[in-house]
Amino acid sequence: MSVLQLEDIKELIKLCAANDRLGQEKLYRKFYPALFLLCRKFFPLQEDALEALNDGMLKVFKNIEKYSDEKGEFFNWVYTIVRNTALDKLRNVSQPGYMEVDDMIIPDNDNPLKALESADIYKLLDVLPPATRAICILFYLEGFSIPQIGEQLDISAGTIKWHLSEVRKRMKPVLLQHYKN
């Protein structure tokens, strides 16, 4: 990041801390593309992704005075808040019960998404139920471990493993198609 960009962000942070609407809009627009893609990973409907993004940014604006350089890069701080907001939204959506399979073994290094193109990944994510989609993203795309996901979503390791198994089952036809071409 250039010095000019860093100074721009620091100025936007000051404006947002002062509750300046124009500053908030500029900051929102600056991070919108990346944060919308993040939320879109979790939600198949654009409206739900936008709602999660807006809720997350509202939390950013309300807590922006708590940010300091010691917390790391500002974008990473915002990204974490928006991601956690999306996860909270997913957690609060009523989901049908899922069975737990505690004896399933899923190696951490087995990432079937590595073989897919970006467009194929998004097509796959769109057909997954919300909870399965969230776990898939956290595990395969964000690199969270099963215990970390369990802590984030407040669910058991067995349930997480079941969701990852579902992802693999649903991905099998996509992977077969990928390797045929």
Rank of each mutant, 00 (worst) to 15 (best):
L35K: 11
F36Y: 14
L37N: 14
L37K: 06
K41W: 03
K41A: 11
F42M: 12
Q46S: 14
E47R: 09
D48I: 03
D48M: 11
L50C: 04
L50H: 07
N54K: 08
D55Q: 11
D55P: 00
G56Q: 03
M57V: 07
L58K: 07
V60D: 06
F61Q: 10
K62C: 10
E65T: 13
K66N: 11
Y67W: 13
S68T: 15
S68V: 00
D69I: 03
K71V: 00
G72W: 03
E73Q: 10
F74Y: 10
F74P: 03
F75H: 08
W77L: 05
V78R: 07
V78L: 07
T80H: 04
I81V: 15
V82R: 01
R83G: 10
T85G: 06
T85N: 14
A86H: 06
D88A: 07
D88G: 09
K89Q: 15
L90D: 01
N92Y: 06
V93C: 07
S94F: 05
S94W: 03
G97R: 10
Y98M: 12
Y98N: 02
Y98Q: 08
M99P: 03
D103C: 12
D103W: 13
D103A: 10
D103Q: 14
M104T: 10
M104Y: 12
I106W: 00
I106T: 09
P107F: 11
P107T: 02
D108C: 00
D108H: 08
D108N: 08
N109R: 12
D110H: 07
N111L: 05
P112S: 08
L113W: 02
L113S: 01
A115V: 11
E117Y: 08
S118Y: 07
D120Y: 07
D120Q: 15
D126F: 04
V127H: 04
L128N: 06
P130H: 10
A131W: 02
T132K: 05
T132N: 09
T132C: 10
I135R: 02
